[in-house]
């Protein structure tokens, strides 16, 4: 009977401890993926476009890159433009700027991209679509 009493006391005392230990074990983390930062995204696609060796690979990368809910950084665009030069496809270079125009929110942002990439455009001789069809 004494042993029973001790046991019941112990049980009563141990119960809150057990609950405290068990509670975190039931928390289930739904996802183990980490959020990719904009910087690591940029770095990933810059290296991708630097390594792209044919037109299909370049266009596949562009499709993936422009499918995210963000506008790719100018360094990514520059790498893609140089990849287009490497695979000798002028049309894709023009199309990249069309993609930027679709992705940005307003014309000021598009103009900012054009200004930022002006040295590359002049170096490679890329006209954007508006320049080609203005006349």
């Amino acid at each position: 009977m004494r042993a029973q009493l001790v046991a019941s006391l112990l049980r009563a005392r141990r119960a809150p401890v057990a609950r405290r230990v068990l509670a975190p074990a039931f928390v289930r983390y739904s996802s183990t993926h980490h959020e990719e930062t904009f910087e690591s995204f940029t770095e990933r696609y810059v290296t991708f476009f630097q390594q792209a060796q044919d037109l299909f690979e370049l266009q596949r990368g562009l499709n993936n890159c422009f499918a995210h809910d963000l506008v790719p950084a100018p360094s990514v665009i520059e790498a893609a433009l140089r990849a287009a030069r490497r695979v000798n496809d002028y049309a894709t270079a023009v199309r990249i700027f069309e993609g930027i125009k679709e992705k940005v929110e307003n014309t000021q942002q598009y103009q900012a991209y054009l200004d930022e990439l002006k040295p590359v455009r002049e170096e490679l001789g890329i006209n954007v679509r508006e320049e080609l069809y203005q006349s």
């Binding site: 496809d89 002028y90 049309a91 894709t92 023009v94 199309r95 069309e98 006209n127 080609l132 069809y133």
Partner: peptide
Amino acid sequence: EKKAAYYVAF
């Protein structure tokens, strides 16, 4: 030539 390349592709 640029317009032709762009037109044929896109």
